[in-house]
């Protein structure tokens, strides 16, 4: 597992250094360095490129744009609304042929779509979604399906362990988000079908380690027969693990996650994590470019495309590893 983690870090470092152009493209000042003026240009507006999920997605976009012969400029908003709007304006001024956006939130997306619409630029939304507005297509993950399947993994495990009377606590992403709601609903459906009780739900606000640790401790303390904790994110899994350990219930409380971290390729086979439902950001990015390309070429496109979330557990991780590496982690080689 440690080796896998180091490998992933090395890949990321190499990629960042080898591909300075792509990094430069995130800077508007780099406009003048465009490869060619007649090459069709696409822009990718992303909320924060430093978040691995968006970075993996940007690589999927970049890889597919390149494949389809598009020049691509990536604008990261560093999770700032103002920057995002500035980026949008910048992108529009570059007279791009199309925009792929992963907005800071679905509300901000509305303004982006509006600005693009006024400029006559087609937009494909890649994840997050929008509250309203005109767009070509919306590419997203099927959170419900993923959560349901991961829930089934858990219930099977609990039944196997004879813990079907135990309850399951959830540390959720904000339920205001559409993806949060879908994840909870899918998961609870699986619990319900198995007749396993829910053991409380906490919504993440700061997404910090401490918050995750605290929420986990509270769930453990408040729920006597807590047998599992499902964390609807991936990056703060350590906080939950530490809380379980600190509560002295290691091996008594199972931990599940959503999305993936490179080290999961080791932790799931080790049984530290029971399972994780993994979105496929790289696939989402490449799909977005393909859809936009089809649109620009006058082809009919699906308005909404839901990509499946992979339920990865000890049982299938080995088999799904190539897919996980490319589509989930964006590791092409």
């Amino acid at each position: 597992m440690k080796r896998f983690s180091h490998l992933f870090s090395a890949f990321l470092t190499i990629f960042l250094f080898i591909n300075p152009l792509n990094l430069a493209q995130a800077n508007p000042a780099a406009e003048g360095h465009s490869e060619s003026n007649h090459t069709p240009k696409l822009a990718y507006l992303v909320s924060d490129i430093h978040i691995p999920f968006w970075e993996i997605m940007s690589r999927g976009i970049q890889e597919q744009a390149h494949t389809l012969g598009y020049q691509l400029e990536i604008y990261s908003a560093h999770n700032e609304a103002k920057r995002e709007l500035k980026n949008t304006i910048q992108a529009i001024k570059q007279n791009v042929s199309g925009i792929i956006v992963s907005p800071t939130n679905s509300s901000a997306c509305v303004t982006i779509l509006e600005l693009a619409r006024k400029a006559g630029i087609p937009v494909v939304i890649s994840d997050i979604g929008t509250e309203s507005g005109d767009y070509v297509s919306y590419i997203s993950s099927d959170n419900f399906q993923g959560a349901y399947q991961i829930g089934q993994v858990l219930t099977e495990k609990m039944q196997a362990l004879g813990w079907q009377n135990g309850s399951v606590g959830i540390i959720a992403i904000p339920q205001a988000r559409e993806n949060g709601k879908n994840r909870t609903a899918g998961f609870l459906k699986a619990l319900e079908e198995a007749g396993i009780k829910g053991g409380g739900l906490k919504q993440q606000i700061t997404f910090s380690y401490q918050e995750t640790y605290d929420y986990s401790s509270e769930l453990i303390n408040q729920t006597p027969n807590l047998k599992a904790i499902w964390l609807q994110g991936s990056n703060r899994y350590q906080g939950a693990l530490d809380a379980i350990r600190d509560s002295g219930k290691e091996n008594e409380i199972l931990l599940l996650t959503f999305d993936a971290e490179p080290e999961f390729l080791e932790l799931i086979p080790q049984g530290v994590l029971i399972a994780s439902a993994m979105q496929q950001p790289f696939l989402m990015g490449s799909t977005a470019v393909s859809v936009l390309d089809n649109f620009l070429h006058g082809k009919k496109v699906e308005k909404e495309i839901k990509l499946s979330v992979l339920p990865i557990s000890m049982a299938n991780i080995k088999k799904m590893q190539p897919t996980i590496k490319r589509n989930v982690l964006g590791i092409l080689k």
Partner: peptide, 8 residues
Amino acid sequence: SYSVNEYS
């Protein structure tokens, strides 16, 4: 906060 859609 440039939340145009929000205030919209």
